[in-house]
Amino acid sequence: MTHLAELPSWAALLTALLLLLGAALALIGSFGLLRFGSFYERIHAPTLGSTLGIGFVLIASMLFFSVLQSRPVLHEVLITVLMVVTTPITLMLLARAALYRDRTEGNDDVPPST
């Protein structure tokens, strides 16, 4: 905890706010996993954490290290790009797999294939 005190107060407050917002969004998203009743509703829940939730945490991290080391630290952009590209792919693959399984099992609540 030695270096935390060297941070100017505006940066510290902003970092704290962004971290709390990001973590709260992630918690709401994961809580949604428990609350929704069906698979196709549940799959919407983690997007909360993986878009804005992790976005806030990454901005906080970038701000914190850039101010602390007095130089732009852009590492976190890589995780941002990775998340932006990968989350839609995993969710899409999952939704397609679930739809395929539901169709082969003959569940009525999914639309038929064209």
């Binding site: 990001g22 973590a23 992630a26 998203g29 994961s30 996993l33 698979f39 549940r42 799959i43 829940a45 983690p46 954490g49 993986s50 939730g53 992790i54 945490v57 995780i79 998340m83 989350t87 995993t90 969710l91 999952l94």
Partner: peptide, 14 residues
């Protein structure tokens, strides 16, 4: 379960 795993790793990254 896989949706749970997805949420788990995003949270772990954060």
């Amino acid at each position: 379960r896989v949706v749970g795993l997805d949420a788990l790793y995003v949270n772990a990254t954060m």
